[in-house]
Amino acid sequence: MKELRFDELTVGDELPALPLSPITRTTLALYAGASGDHNPIHIDLDFARQAGMSDVFAHGMLSAAYLGRFLTGWVRQERIREIKLRFTGITHLQDAPLCSGRIAEKFEHAGEERVRIELKTTVRGNIDTIVGEAVLALK
């Protein structure tokens, strides 16, 4: 892994996006079991229909975990100071999330050189499902 370096980054730089596989029922069953989030809205079609949804849909925290993967693909995990996420859309079955990030700010805090990265997951081309940011302390 080539770590992000403070001096080599410019505000506005885009990190190469991380494309994920389409979400399947198996993805959701695995995530429910692995995460401990057993909310039936994500795994039980009958429950989802009773709640007025046409089908089950993905856990927001699954896309959040993909963003975690995206970040730890670029920096050692101990460099992550903050992750703040807003869930803005639902990820449906067969949607293939795309994680992307853009350097929004370079600053110093607590004696560390830090960057603020605007983060997003999108599906179907341009529908945002998560909008947020991460703060990383870099060398």
Binding site: I41, A51, G60, I80, K84, I90
Partner: peptide, 26 residues
């Protein structure tokens, strides 16, 4: 995790995750 839903008398079928934040110390 569902205890807070019951305590606040919310309806699981109508709930979505709105925001999630982590400040990592170690």
């Amino acid at each position: 995790p569902l205890k807070v839903i019951e305590l606040a008398k919310l309806d699981l079928g109508r709930i979505l995750h709105a925001e999630q934040q982590f400040i990592h110390h170690a």
